[in-house]
Design a protein around this nucleic acid. Structure first.
Lengths: 197, 197, 197, 197
DNA sequence: GATGAATGAGTATTCATTCAT
DNA sequence: AATGAATGAATACTCATTCAT
């Protein structure tokens, strides 16, 4: 009836699943709860997705794609590497705070997860680190940044944000604001050492 | 019979539980698996611990205490703040790599966990950040470090380590070595920016 | 396939549960046994009833409704209060003997039962005493019966029947016949005292 | 150390068990709870009683003996059958109200109980009905009471009291007072029918 | 007289999934 | 596109009981 581009029920399931996976993790999402939340019967979920794993991968793909796109947009909105970095840090903080990307939320239960999913997650990680690595490489080439390993450095940056999400937002329910983003930006750029003339 | 200082059975359960919680998370640890691993009957676990939650808190307490103690030792083994920091970073990387402290591994599940446990975790977090905060404050007082928020800065450092644990060790099964510790140490001290004369 | 008025599976579970609750009480009914008796898997019971409590309340409701209806029918089948009472006593004896209403059978466990269920039982008790109270009030109004407290008197009558069910039927496995009903009827109407001219 | 006639710990266990059996029934008493209540280890219970069944029978025997003795005392304290009956009814109401004899409390779970215990209960029932039967026979012999079946009549009387205990005391937590005893006495003696000159 | 450790069988309940309709 | 019924395997947890000390 609706002339929408994508079938609504499938999207509604994905939306609800994104929420629940982010809150409860892979094992923690119950198909029954998901169905209830969607106002559908359990069996209907299986009409749209082969099984829980397929559902998870769909959500993960959509989710990481969104993060990837937003980071690219943020980088593109600025001209020089430091400004790009700043935009990316702000964007990543906001995204994690608002959507709690399930990539982040699933990382800690990796031990119990099937190899198949792990590989998929491993690939998706690149699509998040990618935009950051690009900026770092750009800055190093321009002589603005020191010649560090770009992958490790990007991973370190991502880790700082995650620490605030997990230890502050999730644990203490304290909102992550621009002060955190600014702190991370400053620390990441200049370190803690007092540099003298 | 054994004139050991600590009663073996309870400790054996805690050891196995430490392992399993770290690998599978809170929900992911099955009492049956734990009992099997210990060579005990399920009911025997309940003879020693009131329930899964009590078991978890016992493990968590022992685990965070160990991390706390090791970090203090590391700091005490060096004289000046930068050296102390370096020792602490190395120690934390090693500990996380070897024991995958369940504090870290449980963070993701915080959403679904009962308030009671959350509060406990929240308190224990301080005992891990504490030693780092002390060193930072010391360095700032000495004019060696820039005047940043010590809590946020310590949290950022911890986050960097966690990123390598989750994204490299847990996900790709790649061991975390001294190169990682060294990278984090350098980045944390000086940032990425190329400082000019 | 069957054009029956009520869905068979749910009713079959209720029938089996009525039996088992009556025999073993609330705690004594095992969902596994119930499922076995129905030829269903345990999980199927939970497909139809939220939990044991919901199942119990369903059975209790159906059971007390039946007793209530039968007592009303019995009373309606006769004209004068004494005859009504006699019919009610016979009917109640027969019902208890055949079905061992779970209301009766659960009473002992009241101590351990949750307040929620107790309240439900308390309400249901009225639907059984009601028909008797009505007859007694009728007879008193007509001057046939002495002006006693109708509630207490009805309760006393019910108690006499229960004594025979528990002490004879359940304990000694001796069937309760018309001799018992007749005894109760005579005792309830005239007492034990030899009235003189 | 104590020159008491009976060993205290065994009595303490019996006292606690009497309470718990009365409240929760046979199945409902947990050895762990009993041990906790006594401040003893579970194994200590088994040091004094072979198993749960033996414990139950000990309690039951002590309990019914007490009821039996008190009923005999009550009967002996009066001269003529009606006065004896009145005393017995008052005493029985009080005993049931205060101690909730486990005989009463176990009756409703008879279905699930082992044949061995049932037989024991069956025997003990006589020691409670006995005193009442004696009074009734006495009254009938004296021409004061109508020639009814003494066993059935005694059972009916007991049933009336039980109805008030289960439906009022246990269910509604309403205390059973002398009004109930008086009602039962009057009803039992004269019935409900208005006798005319 | 007392107990800590241990256990096998049991409890109610939830899980992801299948299938006929 | 959707679902009610059904299920086998799993979950955390409790039970009465035994035994070496």
């Amino acid at each position: 009836m609706l002339p929408t581009t994508i079938t609504p029920p499938k999207q509604a399931i994905l939306d609800a699943a994104q929420d629940l996976f982010a809150q409860h993790g892979y094992e923690g999402l119950s198909i029954r709860d998901l169905a209830d939340r969607c106002g559908l019967a359990k069996a209907t979920i299986y009409h749209h997705f082969a099984d829980k794993q397929a559902l998870f991968l769909s959500v993960l793909e959509r989710d990481t794609q969104l993060v990837h796109d937003r980071l690219l947009e943020a980088a593109a909105s600025e001209q020089n590497p430091p400004a790009k970095l700043r935009a990316v840090i702000y964007t990543y903080c906001t995204l994690m705070s608002e959507r709690r990307s399930i990539l982040l939320c699933t990382l800690r239960e990796i031990g119990g997860i099937e190899a198949h999913i792990r590989e998929f997650i491993s690939q998706r990680r690149a699509s998040i680190l990618g935009p950051v690595v690009t900026i770092l490489a750009e800055g190093m080439a321009a002589g603005l940044f020191r010649p560090l390993d770009p992958e490790m450095t990007a991973l370190s940056l991502i880790g700082m944000v995650h620490a605030f999400i997990t230890f502050r937002l999730l644990l203490d329910n304290v909102q992550i604001g621009s002060d955190v983003a600014e702190h991370i930006y400053a620390l990441f750029l200049h370190g803690i050492v007092q540099e003298n003339s």
